[in-house]
Each structure stands twice: as structure tokens, then as C-alpha cells.
């Protein structure tokens, strides 16, 4: 059995990191590219990993940075300017998910995902980490380099925003029935 850094991290966390990336960018090919970039950064910087956090939160922090870098580059390309991309206030515009990935989702989940696209970048990131990845508040705080209080507040605001977005859809559905 190979216990090198790559094999150990791949075996323990690859599918979790990939899921985190694909829910952020909603494009399988792009998620594959970003996962590659995550491993490049991991392998190049592993010797600087001080062990202040767990390998899991360190890996997710790198994945988060890779994703943010992608969205920043995308924003620059779209705006044709060098405006600073503030992921804490701006939306993370992802592309349409593949039909194969959509097949697995319920109508209700698709509505939630659509509403999630209207959240700010930090809210979307927290929802994915806390609910889709089942990361704890402490782990999410470490990955985002926030306080636990900020994670809780952001999560609360995101849930409130999602509910506000989804309630009218549910009311319209109820009227039609």
C-alpha cells in the first residue's frame, strides 16, 4: 500500500473535494481541472504544511482558494477589467450543470440550487460546506479563516435568503394545485 501524500489525501478526501468543487462551479470538466490544480498546489506546498490544522481543512482551504481564483479570473474575463472581485459580496456565477448530474436531483433540490446561485459567494460557500459536505462549524471556520461566529451568521443569513427566494415558488405551486 502506498502511503505517500497524494495517495493518502486522494483516498481520504478526493471525492469530498471534487463534490465541493463541482457544486461550486456546476461543471464537471471545470471541476476536474480545478481538482488537478488543487493537487498541484498540495504537492508543491506540502512541505510548508505546519500541521496547525488538520490535513482535511488544509486541503479544503486550498480547494476554496483554487475556486476563488477561478471565479476572479472569470470575473476579469467577463468584465474586461481588473476590478477586484469580492467573493464575499458578489455572486459566484457558475455554469449550467450537466444533464447527467441534474438527473440525480429532485425538483425541489433544483429549485434550491437555483436560489443558491443568487446568494453571495460567501453564503454559497458556507451552504456547500455545512450542508453538502457536512463540515462542522469549526472546520468551516478554519477553511475560510473566519471566526465560528461569522460562519454561524453567514449560514443563518443564507438560510433566510434561500427561504425568501423559495417561498414564492412554493406559493405559486400551491395555487396551481
Amino acid at each position: 500500500m502506498n502511503d505517500s501524500v497524494f495517495h493518502r489525501l486522494y483516498d481520504a478526501y478526493h471525492q469530498d473535494v471534487f463534490q465541493f468543487l463541482i457544486y461550486l462551479v456546476k461543471n464537471r470538466t471545470l471541476a476536474e481541472d480545478l481538482a488537478h490544480e488543487v493537487y498541484v498546489r498540495v504537492l508543491r506546498s506540502y512541505d510548508q504544511f505546519a500541521g496547525n490544522s488538520s490535513e482535511k481543512t488544509w486541503l479544503f482551504a486550498i480547494a476554496k482558494n483554487v475556486a476563488i481564483d477561478h471565479f476572479r479570473k472569470q470575473a476579469v474575463r467577463q468584465k474586461h477589467s481588473l476590478d477586484f472581485f469580492d467573493w464575499e459580496t458578489e455572486q459566484l456565477h457558475s455554469t449550467t450543470p450537466s444533464p447527467e448530474d441534474m438527473l440525480q436531483a429532485s425538483d425541489e433540490f433544483i429549485q434550491v440550487e437555483s436560489a443558491l446561485e443568487k446568494c453571495t459567494g460567501d453564503q454559497k460557500m458556507v451552504i456547500i460546506m455545512r450542508y453538502f459536505q457536512d463540515l462542522s462549524i469549526a472546520e468551516t471556520a478554519q477553511i475560510l479563516d473566519w471566526t465560528e461566529a461569522k460562519v454561524k451568521t453567514t449560514q443563518h443569513r443564507a438560510i433566510k435568503f434561500l427561504r425568501q427566494q423559495l417561498q414564492p415558488i412554493k406559493e405559486q405551486e400551491a395555487k396551481r394545485q
Binding site: Y10, H14, A35, D101, V112, Y131, I159, K170, E173, A174
Partner: peptide, 24 residues
């Protein structure tokens, strides 16, 4: 039919698992 927080959190917790189909 209403989306209360509990129901919303249930839907979020049951997000489909999306895996990487490529080999190591």
C-alpha cells in the same frame, strides 16, 4: 408546501452525491 427552515435544511442535507468518475 411552504419552505420552512427545517424542510429547507432537510433538502440541503440530502443533496445528491456527485462523484469524480476518473480513476486515481
Amino acid at each position: 408546501k411552504q419552505f420552512d427552515d427545517e424542510h429547507l435544511e432537510h433538502v440541503l442535507h440530502n443533496a445528491p452525491k456527485l462523484s469524480d468518475h476518473r480513476s486515481k
